[in-house]
Design a protein around this nucleic acid. Structure first.
Lengths: 134, 134
DNA sequence: CAGCATCCCGTACGATACTG
DNA sequence: CAGTATCGTACGGGATGCTG
């Protein structure tokens, strides 16, 4: 298969929609894919959403993000922390008191996730109702 | 919001950020969670992004969304189709010719995913570089 | 070309128990 | 209170082969 085959279809307008981001293709092994996987991990979006209104303690996060296990909450927070999206602050008191909040970078991301969540919440009822009929 | 209101951290300002969406909690079993799971499934975001610049054939999608297997591409497309986000059109010719495009609803969703992808693409290098040092 | 069926494996995930 | 440690399983998801 000749790599020079100029097909007007496969080199779409993606590059125009995501300027400087793609050359008409979404590469498998690239930093964007890694970050996307972290963010769209099972609990990533929900944790970031939960933190977008300010600082929360571990126990508060467990209550807000309903259904998350201790293990997964910890793992998700570790990943987001390593990515510089979440800041962890532990106060050396007894009993322990640990707070989590978004970093500057995390807030930048949340600015995109909040509208997305809003859209989903507005359309979810219609979508699942429709999907149930098939 | 009146400052006199005793907001003890667990009833956060989430409700204000996502008006009418949450009462300070992100419920486990609800339509929003279902749709979120569909969209943030491993290939959901990428397929929608790939379709945001117009109609694409099956084979084109496989080329654009690099790394996706036939099975997962099919499964993702079925789910998105059932959710009314993607439209499938098969032309009864030999050999088969099947086209996919976003529905109106799907375009509404893409309007939120594109900026998100843009942000990720811009920040991914820094994030991955930083995360590697830990 | 577009895709389903089948097999099979790794790991993501949850439940439980334990600790600083 | 805020986690780790350990274990077991379900399921996501890849590889292959077959079909309309």
């Amino acid at each position: 298969m000749p790599p020079s085959a100029p097909s007007p279809d496969d080199v779409g307008a993606l590059s125009a929609l995501l300027p400087g981001v793609t050359d008409g293709v979404l590469p498998a092994a690239c930093p964007s894919r890694t970050v996307l996987d972290h963010v769209t991990s099972k609990w990533g979006v929900l944790v970031i959403i939960a933190l977008s209104d300010g600082t929360h303690r571990w126990s508060a996060l467990r209550r807000v993000v309903q259904g998350v296990s201790e293990k997964m909450l910890a793992q998700t927070l570790r990943t987001l922390e390593a990515d510089g999206l979440v800041h962890r602050e532990a106060r050396p008191v007894v009993p322990p008191h640990v707070e989590y909040r978004l970093t500057e970078r995390g807030r930048g991301l949340a600015e995109h996730l909040l509208p997305l969540m809003g859209w989903i919440a507005q359309n979810a009822d219609d979508i699942v109702a429709e999907a149930a009929t098939r």
